[in-house]
Amino acid sequence: MKTLKDAKIGQTVTVIKLHGEGAVRRRIMDMGITKRVEIFVRKVAPLGDPIEINVRGYELSLRKADAEMIEIA
């Protein structure tokens, strides 16, 4: 399974499914990461984590541990 964690900087990916459960998962969905949405991977923080992505026209940062819950094509 390929997740957002594996995506390279500068890549545009499409979300297939969200894994995990509870508050974190819901938060990720509320922030606009849902099925079929396009995500552009902008950059990685200076210390290697978290990452910054562009989704639905705004910038969002999330930890790699959370990005691992997002399955991409």
């Binding site: 922030m31 978290p50 910054e52 910038e59 969002l60 940062s61 999330l62």
Partner: peptide
């Protein structure tokens, strides 16, 4: 507990 989710907007 688990670390709270760090899903944070970087506002303009």
């Amino acid at each position: 507990g688990k670390p709270a989710p760090f899903v944070m907007e970087l506002p303009t």
